[in-house]
Design a protein around this nucleic acid. Structure first.
Length: 922
RNA sequence: GCUCGAGUGGUGGAAUAGGUAGACACGCAGGACUUAAAAUCCUGUGGACAGCAAUGUCCGUACGGGUUCGAUUCCCGUCUCGAGCACCA
């Protein structure tokens, strides 16, 4: 048996052993407490894993292994978010089926992941593109289609219950989340046709078909994302793009806004992430108010939303969003052509352009006038892009004196500005602060803004023209994509009415098609499928978006092979929800909102037992690339070292970081790298070629992608794991920099030498000394609390200190070394498994139990007393244990610290309290 | 513009309740072992000043104030960087 630390042999051996023995397979075990550790599953891209990807996986694996050692039954699965755009675009170009490329990419990801030694239970692997998996994505969609949201009970209910209510009582007492308010009697409902019923119910369904605005490119016949459009033209082809209203499937996420916001308080997530979700949900309290608008001889009630009901006396005009449904009815005949022209120009702009032109004032007068409900004054109604159709009611009352956007608009179109707060100056800019005393405001005069807001709301409520209202920025999620590589909708159209398929017919599998681009007539790729119909009726041709499959995947891991249910009730009740979720912040307002929504929906219907999916969440930072450069003297094939480059006229060239070590270029490897450089000459400094460097995004084109496989080849997986943790705090983004990886590798070899020197094993059964026990137990305490706090970098440091100390005192005792192996095994599982085996254990170290911390070993016969003066002042001093309070007092008074910290002030009294805090009164 | 977070040696970063700032590691310098190299080990390493020396004194956690016997830590203001949102009425 080798006495060297031969990491490649050891790692291969144990990875094989774990796979063959199913070491990390878990089953539900009611005798053990559960712990569920989850990573955000990856999209398997063609480029494979780079060293940035495993950062979070390593941290969560350490945590999983740590919890397992502590006796928890740990669920730690992995799978793949396999539907997605890159595979489809590749298919469009090459004609290869996305399923093939996806399978290849997954195989590559799995082999890369397995080299790093993760403790995944691969028997629970899921893939979102697997029909057995997406059956349950489709199932959840149909459940949403078959549900409505009851605002009174605050939960989703089956749509049949709403139908029954309509049949007996119409819309009275219905408080439902809906696209637009409806009002009808039971008799009216009962006399409607089947199609009319379907239309009404669509207004209430949680998954519903509705109109929404999209970037539409008529020439390409497809919807484009905002970043695929520049200056109103498609990036590919340069065809014009317009804003178009289209029928799209949507999820009524907005119905859950209140709960998504409120339940954030129950979660152990970072404050910044919670804040992001709060901003995204965007709760704002205000009031709805009805303004009467006259157009010719007709009068309409237009509802607006405002957070500043107090400013209603300063309303000098009204503004509608260009897409508002009121625009048509409120346009006076003489203004029709100008309004149409404005609407057309607004429609030509993309969302992106609107953002870019934020401060440009545009608008058009409708020709109609509203009446200010409190002053009775007639005010003009305008249309402008700065009012958004999707927020509030798509119509506002404009108060130029106290809103900067209204102010800019009023200045531009010369509309009156009436200040409402005493002493404010609105000659240059609006006064937006909710601060001051009201004036020019009738019955509100003399009140502060804070008093005036509720008073104004009370007044309009009394007049019957308004009410308190909470608005959210959160919009319903658009759920249709005109793509191939996604879940098909289990919906067919019977005489144009959307009808759900039978649950028993799920999954509805993605059909084979011969080409992956949209059809010539502009239909989605699925229109190419033959016989894409159900009972003779056409099936929906769009597919679901990426977030569909990733919204409930954590539930499926609990019971991945169940074909009767998404998750068996008993298994769900055992695993409940994710205790620790690790992933990037980029999902803060996407996946993490959708998942919470999806989970709450299933919770409402009783399919899952927890209202929140992810209890604790840790965001790992991104690993950036560290690019290296060489400097070629212009017009030559000679390269000059970094510190000498200023003496020449050079070109900076990216060089593959894999042939650079500690910024030193491997000259031979460089000559072999590219044919151009085969005959390269070098101007060296101190015999070496030093490269320049820069921090950039890790990408192929910068030649700064570091493949974890290479690191495993050179240093081993255990070194990679430790080094990624040692790099810095998990949450922080940082560049990958191999400087320092040698130090970590050195540590592992040093650890190995505690067990083996060149002559063989050195560990013995000798009893541990108190100095050795102190090192061990200090380490147990430090490492445990660091892992709990997810401070993996400092725990690696603690290991280094402990191993240094143990080698210095020449520790040989198994009594110390065995627990050391267990402690380190979450971080460096391969070396620890090998040493554990060599120490004579047959079982895997992952089945060992975590060593228990014994305080008395670490304190020996002295103890640190924090000393507090006057309850405020404290310092640390070492005192012998077992002193009486009198002796402690004497020691404190005699301590040089006392003199130092008090600066010569007399100490009157020392009080020793049971908590080992000493109060010194002076 | 709004919201949140962060600024510490040559570098990555420690300091868990306000109590010796710079742990640990890299890098660098010097040394031991070696014919040599690799590997390993040891010593030094924030700055300034004084001293042959052990050592001592002062300054130092972006900047300016404040609270405190004492501030990297708490408070106010300024600057810089990062992240997110961005006409949300």
């Amino acid at each position: 048996m080798s006495t060297d630390y031969n990491f490649s042999e050891i790692e291969r051996k144990w990875q094989k052993f774990w796979a063959e023995n199913g070491t990390y397979k878990v089953t539900e075990d009611s005798g053990k407490p559960k712990f569920y550790v989850l990573d955000m599953f990856p999209y398997p891209s063609g480029a494979g894993l780079h060293v940035g990807h495993p950062l979070g996986y390593i941290a969560s694996d350490i945590y999983s292994r740590y919890k397992r050692l502590q006796g928890f039954n740990v669920l730690h699965p992995m799978g793949f978010d396999a539907f997605g755009l890159p595979a489809e675009q590749y298919a469009v170009q090459t004609g290869r089926h996305p399923a093939l490329t996806t399978d290849e990419n997954i195989a590559r990801y799995k082999s890369q992941l397995n080299r790093i030694g993760f403790s995944y239970d691969w028997t629970r692997e899921i893939r979102t593109s697997d029909p057995a998996y997406y059956k349950w994505t489709q199932w959840a969609f149909l459940k949403m289609f078959g549900s409505w949201y009851d605002n009174t009970l605050g939960k989703a209910r089956p749509i049949e219950e709403l139908e029954a209510h309509f049949a007996s009582e119409g819309t009275s007492d219905v408080n439902a989340a809906c696209s637009r308010e409806m009002s009808f009697s039971a008799a009216e409902w009962n006399s409607m046709t089947e199609k009319e019923h379907a239309d009404v119910l669509m207004n209430y369904r949680i998954a519903y078909l509705g109109e929404t605005s999209v970037n539409w490119c008529p020439a390409l016949g497809t919807v484009l994302a905002n970043d695929e459009v520049k200056e109103g033209l498609s990036v590919r082809g340069g065809y014009p793009v317009i804003q178009k209203k289209m029928q799209q499937w949507q999820l009524r996420v907005s119905a859950y806004a209140e709960r998504l916001l409120g339940d954030l308080d129950t979660l152990d997530w970072s404050d910044s992430l919670k804040e992001m979700q709060r901003n995204w949900i965007g709760r704002s309290e205000g009031a709805e108010m009805i303004f009467k608008v006259e157009n010719g001889d007709r009068t309409y009630d237009v509802t607006i939303f405002t957070t500043r009901a107090d400013t209603v006396f300063g309303v000098t005009f009204m503004v509608l969003a260009p897409e508002s449904e009121w625009v048509d009815r409120l346009t006076a005949p003489q203004m029709r052509s100008q309004v149409d022209e404005y609407l057309a120009s607004a429609a030509r702009k993309t969302e992106r352009e609107r953002m870019a032109q934020t401060r440009q004032v545009t608008g058009v007068f409708t020709g109609s006038y509203a009446v200010n409900p409190l002053t009775g004054q007639k005010i003009p109604v305008w249309i402008s892009e700065y009012v958004l159709a999707g927020y509030g009611t798509g119509a506002i009352m404009a108060v130029p004196a106290h809103d900067s956007r209204d102010y800019a608009f009023a200045r531009h179109f010369n509309l009156p500005i009436i200040p409402l707060i005493e002493g404010c100056d609105v000659s240059q800019e609006s006064f937006d602060a909710k601060d001051g005393v009201m004036c020019n405001s009738g019955f509100l005069n003399g009140m502060t803004v804070k008093e005036a807001i509720p008073a104004a709301i009370a007044k309009v409520e009394e007049m019957g023209i308004g009410r308190r209202k909470v608005n959210y920025r959160l919009r319903d999620a658009i759920f249709s994509r005109q793509r191939y590589w996604g879940e098909p909708f289990p919906i067919y159209y019977k005489d144009g009415v959307a009808v759900p398929m039978e649950m028993s017919d799920l999954p509805l599998c993605l059909p084979e098609i011969d080409k992956y681009q949209p059809t010539e007539s502009g239909e989605p790729p699925l229109a190419r499928a033959r016989n894409w119909e159900y009972n003779g009726w056409p099936i929906e041709k769009s597919t679901m978006p990426g977030f569909a499959g990733s919204s409930a995947y954590y539930l499926r891991y609990m019971d991945p092979c169940n074909d009767k249910a998404l998750v068996d009730r008993r298994k769900d009740e055992y695993w409940r929800n994710v205790d620790l979720y690790v992933g990037g912040t980029e999902h803060a307002t996407g996946h993490l909102i959708y998942s919470r929504f999806w989970n709450k929906f299933l919770y409402d219907l009783g399919y899952v037992c927890e209202p929140e999916p992810f209890r604790k969440l840790v965001n790992q930072g991104m690993i950036q690339g560290r690019s290296n450069f060489v400097y070629r003297i212009k017009g030559t094939n000679t390269f000059v070292s970094y510190n000498l480059k200023d003496q020449y006229d050079t070109t900076e060239i990216h060089v593959d970081v894999n042939i650079v070590h500690n910024d030193r270029l491997d000259l031979d490897a460089f000559r072999k790298w590219l044919p151009d450089f085969a005959s390269a000459e070098f101007i060296l400094e101190d015999g070496e070629y030093i490269c320049g460097w820069a921090i950039e995004k890790m990408s192929k084109s910068m030649f700064n992608v570091v493949n974890p496989d290479n690191v495993c080849d050179t240093y081993g997986a255990d070194t990679l794991r430790l080094y990624e943790m040692f790099l810095g705090p998990i949450e922080q983004s940082k560049p990958w920099d191999t400087k320092g990886i040698d130090g970590v590798h050195r540590f592992l070899r040093k650890f190995w030498r505690l067990f083996y020197d060149k002559d063989g094993a050195v560990f013995t059964d000798v009893k541990a000394t108190s100095a050795e026990l102190k090192v061990l137990h200090n380490l147990i305490r430090k490492v445990s609390s660091d892992i709990e706090h997810f401070s993996m970098n400092t725990s690696v440091s603690a290991f280094m200190i402990a191993v240094n100390e143990l080698s210095e005192i020449k520790c040989r005792s198994r009594e110390i070394l065995e627990p050391m192996v267990i402690l380190l095994s979450p971080f460096a599982p391969h070396i620890c498994e090998e040493l554990w085996n060599r120490l004579g254990h047959d079982d895997s170290v992952s089945n060992a139990s975590y060593p228990e911390y014994v305080e008395s070993y670490t304190v020996e016969n002295t103890f640190e007393y924090p000393v507090s003066f006057n309850g405020k002042m404290r310092f640390k001093m070492e005192l012998d244990l077992g002193l009486s309070p009198k002796e402690v007092e004497a020691a404190v008074l005699a301590s040089p610290n006392t003199e130092k910290y008090l600066g010569g002030k007399p100490v009157r009294k020392v009080i020793v309290v049971p908590s080992k805090i000493i109060n010194v009164v002076f």
